[in-house]
């Protein structure tokens, strides 16, 4: 099975960008595509993109299941948002949905078939204690028992330590900004909230430009690009739906212009996203990012370990100053944590 051909994430990117291209896949190719899509949390998205495309019966059944699973995931995610809304409503503070839940609540194309994990919300920093107390009083509990992790989150992170609801077993991440406080870039959190958009159910979402800025920040200024194909698909859908007018100005207001441009270039490269001609410049590092984003084999296994390791180190480099980084990695190492 799949002996001769070596697949990577480009197989998935091509199927998302050009669904008809799957017409040339044999059984091994379909199998690899499904494995990579699951590993990248894009099975539901792929299943929606491929609706109406000719495919073997076994694949069609898998796609039906993936769409049903995403539909149920959407119901559960919106219910979780509603649960949080009810608890936080008496506080009379703006609650902004982020990422997948926001896309689903607003009916955006980025939300179609998207897998949604935790509930991510943004609240004003000066209200975060009240938000935390309200959630703790309504059945949410700490996930991280480790005092180092807890203290680290509270002092340096852009969010509270993750909370989990003891009955529904769902996590909530309460953000007060979109990048760690230790990062060299400091987005304008007050502007994110001031320009957020009401959703009609008492909750809010970021403005379209800020959603794009947030997605780009998350992808290129924070993490190690894990799950990056899905984040980049979000960016693709947001640009396709809202365009790029005013985006560069907004990005530079938050200090994230380079990240937004890189996100747009890579979305264009992987998903053929329509971006302005002037943005289609050549950057040597883009090829490395692309190879990291697509580092999967036909079994869904992570590949290119050195490249992954490099991006892992980079994520920490971006996140904190060198002395602090050394101390942090040493503490984590002693606790037995090993990357990759």
């Amino acid at each position: 099975m799949g002996r001769a051909v070596r697949y990577d994430g480009d197989l998935l990117a091509r199927a998302l960008r050009d669904p008809a291209s799957t017409g040339s896949l044999d059984a091994g190719g379909w199998t690899a595509l499904i494995g990579i899509a699951r590993a990248e949390q894009l099975a539901g998205t792929l299943a929606h993109r491929l609706e109406g495309v000719a495919m073997p019966g076994a694949v069609a059944r898998i796609m039906v299941d993936a769409r049903a699973s995403a539909a149920q995931g959407r119901i559960a995610a919106l219910w979780e948002a509603e649960m949080a809304r009810r608890v936080l409503a008496p506080l009379d503070c703006p609650v902004v949905l982020l990422k997948g839940t926001a896309f689903a609540a607003a009916g955006l194309s980025a939300g179609v078939g998207r897998s949604i994990g935790d509930l991510d919300i943004l609240v004003p920093r000066d209200r975060i204690d009240a938000v935390e107390a309200a959630l703790l009083g309504a059945g949410w509990e700490w996930v991280k028992p480790d005092p180092y992790d807890d203290a680290y989150y509270r002092r340096w992170m852009h969010e509270l330590p993750p909370l989990i609801h003891r009955e529904r077993d769902r996590m909530i991440d309460v953000h007060h900004t979109i990048l760690p406080l230790t990062a060299r870039i400091t987005p304008d959190a007050a502007a994110l909230i001031a320009d957020s958009v009401a959703l009609g159910n008492g909750l809010r979402m970021l403005s379209p430009a800020d959603m794009l800025v947030h997605a780009a920040a998350h992808l290129f200024a924070d993490g190690d690009l894990a799950g990056g194909m899905r984040n980049l698909w979000d960016i693709h859908c947001l640009i396709e739906q809202f365009g790029t007018d005013g985006l560069a100005e907004r990005a530079s207001h938050h200090g994230l212009e380079a990240e937004v441009h890189r996100a747009a270039r890579l979305a264009h490269a992987l998903y053929d996203t329509a971006i302005p001609e002037a943005w289609r410049t050549r950057h040597r590092a883009d090829a490395l990012y692309r190879r990291r984003l697509t580092a999967r084999d036909g079994w869904g296994r992570p590949t290119r370990p050195l490249l992954r390791q490099g991006f892992y180190l980079r994520s920490h480099w971006l996140r904190m100053p060198p002395a602090m980084l050394a101390r942090h990695l040493w503490t984590k190492w002693r606790k037995g944590y090993r990357p990759v």
Binding site: A27, T31, G35, P56, G57, A58, R61, W299, G300
Partner: peptide, 14 residues
């Protein structure tokens, strides 16, 4: 063999 030679699930022992 799996229907259409496309399995529903993959398992890896590594």
């Amino acid at each position: 063999a799996p229907a259409d030679d496309v399995p529903d699930f993959s398992v890896r022992l590594f």
